[in-house]
Design a protein around this nucleic acid. Structure first.
Lengths: 191, 191
DNA sequence: GTCTATAATAGGATAGAC
DNA sequence: GTCTATCCTATTATAGAC
């Protein structure tokens, strides 16, 4: 039987898998590659996970959880709608661009999940999007943004999520710089 | 030997491949699936293409070419910077959301290309991005947008490209509606 | 919890006839 | 240009010993 889902060892293995899935994509990463990176043989992998897809599910769960946690922290104690939007954007980009891996996988590899994994994770995704929805709602109510809130949320997350495709961590701009630039583009210059 | 790259038959096959790659992703699509959809046996596929990856390259080439053509048409005869931006956005979303397939594959499956295919295609991508760069440049010069132009281009294309992940063609909003909404969000309401 | 060994199959690609 | 037949390897997953 596989061990409990919250074992420390499993967490480590999931983090390693996240890195490989991030670097090469889920489908191109074989269980042998995973086992190698984990320092075990491929047969041993199946002591921790029932199948390959379950590893992906665990990675995505991990990515969503940490994104959620960092997002909540970022909003904690911040009251001004513009500031909340900026802080949430910084948190989002931070998980994507600095601590790359799990959150990126969570955004880009949904297609490879089984239906039952999808059921498990879709609630977490909705929860995260609701956080954004509320913050944008506050901005609209405060008059610093205008338009259809779900649409603004989707455009914003699109602009942010796409940074994964082009951002160069060794370049001049920090992920915080990007967040600021996006807020400015949307008519919310730093006050 | 494989036939010339511009044969009509090959174009048809590439379009079919584009649909499958769009629906399931490149890695999850097998050459047998491709052959089935094309109405031939898998062995026959290799009369038209040297290997699977070459099919992807052809699909992406196709996607970039048609996106480029539609973009040029959209800008033709339009002078006002704001109008040009809107028109280009509409064209981009139209190739992504209505005539889904090749352009979507072109955006999302770069990772699976071989180095030599990459060399071939990277120039086309740059050309397309340059088109956007110029239009945004014009907007900045006209004072309707402000900020770092490459950054604005990337955020804009991110917001647009991400629509693939959530857009529902059977919903109320057309792809043109989305383009308008984004322009408004960026402080360029229809005049 | 990890190992070795291996089963079972799927996947990309080729050869040669028609 | 397509078919049949098939090769060859990679891949996921299992079984049983330690």
């Amino acid at each position: 039987m596989t061990p409990p889902n919250n074992s420390k060892r499993r967490k480590e293995l999931v983090a390693i898998a996240a890195r490989l899935f991030y670097e090469q994509g889920y489908e191109r990463t074989t269980v042998r590659m995973l086992a190698d990176a984990m320092g075990i043989k491929s047969g041993s992998l199946f002591h921790h996970f029932n199948d390959k897809q379950e590893i992906l599910c665990a990675v995505i769960q991990d990515g969503m959880e940490s994104a959620m946690e960092i997002a909540r922290q970022a909003l904690d104690g911040v009251a001004d709608p513009k500031e909340r939007f900026l802080s949430l954007s910084k948190a989002h980009l931070s998980t994507l661009l600095n601590d790359r891996n799990a959150h990126v996988v969570a955004l880009y590899e949904w297609r490879s999940l089984s239906d039952s994994s999808l059921d498990l994770l879709i609630g977490m995704r909705d929860e995260y999007e609701n956080l954004w929805q509320k913050v944008i709602d506050e901005c609209v109510e405060a008059g610093v943004l205008k338009g259809d809130v779900p649409l603004i949320r989707r455009f914003t997350l699109g602009a942010l999520n796409w940074t994964v495709q082009w951002y160069d961590a060794s370049g001049e701009k920090s992920s915080d710089d990007l967040a600021k630039a996006l807020a400015e583009l949307m008519g919310m210059p730093a006050s």
